[in-house]
Simulated scan of single mutants.
Amino acid sequence: MFSSERRGKTLTAIIMIAPFLTAYLVVFAYPVYKMFALSFTDAPLIGVGQWVGFGNYVKLFGQKLFYTSVWNTGYFVLLTVIPNTLIGLGLALMVVRLKGWLQSLILVLFFIPYILPVSVVTQIWQWVLDQQFGIAQYIIEFFTGKRISVFRDPVWAMPMVALVTVWWTNGFNLLLFIAGLRNIPQDYYEAAMLDGATRLQCFRRITWPLIWPVTALVLTLQLILQLKIFDQVYLMTEGGPFNSTYVLLQLVYREAFRLNHGGVGSAVAVMLFLIIVVVSVLQYQLLRVRGR
């Protein structure tokens, strides 16, 4: 009886996990295996190739464009991950104080950009930042004394892409922080206020320690997402001017889809995959240690 019941539970468990396991193997595991396998061949984008070992990686490390794309990707991450997280937390601390329909309205307004397609987002900001009639040019002119074609300027291009990205994705961070703040019992704040604690002290001693797990999650998610930057750069600058916004996924696109070098493109994708895994794991572990 025991063995029959155990076999029944095992069969049920297999049936339950089979759809997920099948989807995981087909959608993730097999493509990752093929990516690694192709990176050691001279295969075109479609078709088979000859084994070249580490030849694609040697070729890759000999390209100046590869180092440029790594640097630009890291620069973009610095411009977006921490600012996006801090802005989301700051907005959440303000929005959580609102009540009823007003809070719901503000949340909707902040979340609307997140559900917009990237093509719509980039088109909006190309109008806003247009050198001739963009309304943001009044602000730029006030601080610099002149109008600037920001997406054609090597200094301005990447910060502007980062600004658009923060505006576009911050609504998701805001919702995560709102959920975390709502889980903090109000009794803690009431007891602290009775003891004479200020709002700053409440934030430092109550809010910040208890919201830290959510902050670590947001930082890790943002790091992974921003390392995969492609759409905004491709639509706004196409990697220019002078490769100042050329990122790793754009190098994958160039090698694989434009030059038909499937092996080299896979090698770039493998390098990006390893960077994401190593950096995100290190960051998450550091954040866990900091949380403790």
Rank of each mutant, 00 (worst) to 15 (best):
D187E: 14
G49C: 12
M193T: 05
S244L: 02
R6G: 00
G62R: 13
T237L: 03
G291I: 05
T41P: 10
V32T: 15
L86Y: 06
A162Y: 05
L93P: 01
M1A: 13
L219F: 03
A157E: 07
V52N: 03
R6D: 02
F54D: 12
R205W: 06
P19Y: 07
F143Q: 01
V270F: 04
I82V: 15
I82R: 11
G53R: 00
K99T: 12
I17Y: 00
N170V: 15
M16A: 14
D153Y: 10
I140Y: 00
S119R: 00
V161N: 00
G74H: 02
V164Y: 01
L251S: 04
L217S: 12
V155F: 09
K59L: 10
A37Q: 13
K99H: 10
V214K: 08
D195E: 15
Y189V: 09
L116E: 10
M160S: 14
V155T: 14
L21T: 05
P209G: 05
E255R: 07
D231K: 00
V70P: 03
Q137P: 06
M271G: 08
K9F: 11
Y188W: 08
V108H: 04
L129I: 03
N170T: 15
L274S: 08
P44M: 09
V270N: 00
F230S: 03
Y253K: 13
N170K: 13
A157Q: 06
L79M: 11
Y253E: 13
L60V: 09
R7S: 03
V164N: 05
F151I: 12
V247F: 09
N72I: 13
V128K: 03
I124P: 01
V270Y: 03
F133K: 02
G145S: 09
F257S: 10
P209M: 07
I224D: 04
V281Y: 08
V166A: 04
P241V: 15
